[in-house]
Design a protein around this nucleic acid. Structure first.
Lengths: 133, 133
DNA sequence: CCTCTTCGCTAAGTAAACCTAGCGATCGCT
DNA sequence: AGCGATCGCTAGGTTTACTTAGCGAAGAGG
């Protein structure tokens, strides 16, 4: 009975993603917090998955990281509609294929790199339970 | 200009949209509330723009209306980052950033490869650096 | 050694999201 | 006329998001 807590895992994944993006941009916790107009302790708690941030905060964090809101929301498990079962594992592949800024050689090698990363090492996603519509 | 309150207008627009969708589906307040696992008074307040619903509630309401969350957020004007009006190569970047099958270092290096291809000039502020894997 | 700064985190409080209980109005039915 | 069911909303309390104040560790100089 005392089973898993998928929402907590989702929160932790979101937090780790934010933290990795922040470090990649070489920002301190206080720095990003100031950019996003949130307090640094709260941002710390978000990054450790202790709280579920609101849409407003999520948007502000995305702005502070120069990311789109869709990216963060998707990472937060928000995207993915009940009537649109586009669960294709290759949304990235489609984006690469449709990207008009890539030359054909570049497109091919980028696709090759991506496939070498994900090809057979399909990381097990946290259990996503769908109540059948 | 100082008199406007854009956040409240957004909330009201979102609420009116939810209400119109609910009536179009011929659902009562209590009905949709039960589908979305929220209380009916709270749903009433959301529809009148008195509260900003959390991500969890937003997702549940979208599910109860058989809508995608993007539709709800887009209608509310919550999508579209203020710092990222770019429509071009960001689509691929977003896909890479949101890809759940990539590890963080894989994500970073794939992103670096892509950016080197499109020779993207990033904003002057954040230092963008890729630690070599 | 000591001081100054910056890092991330904890503790305790305030503000807001969210729920349960219940009210007045409107409908159909006998 | 009533009674009962259902509509949306208000009033109050509980839970959670979010803030301000401050602690201890780690590095840079004196």
């Amino acid at each position: 009975m005392a089973g898993e807590d998928p929402v907590r895992e989702q929160l932790e994944a979101l937090g780790e993603f934010i933290r990795s993006q922040r470090k990649q941009a070489q920002l301190s916790l206080r720095d990003l917090a100031e950019r996003a107009n949130v307090s640094n302790p709260y941002l710390s708690q978000i990054e450790r998955g202790l709280h579920e941030p609101s849409v407003r905060v999520l948007k502000a964090i995305a702005g502070g990281l120069n990311l789109s809101v869709e990216t963060l929301l998707g990472r937060a498990g928000l995207l993915g509609s009940p009537t649109d079962p586009d669960e294709g594992p290759t949304a990235t592949e489609h984006a690469i294929l449709a990207d008009p800024y890539l030359g054909d050689d570049q497109r091919a090698s980028l696709l090759a790199v991506y496939r070498s990363y994900v090809d057979r090492v399909r990381q097990p996603r946290p259990a996503e339970d769908e109540p059948a519509p």
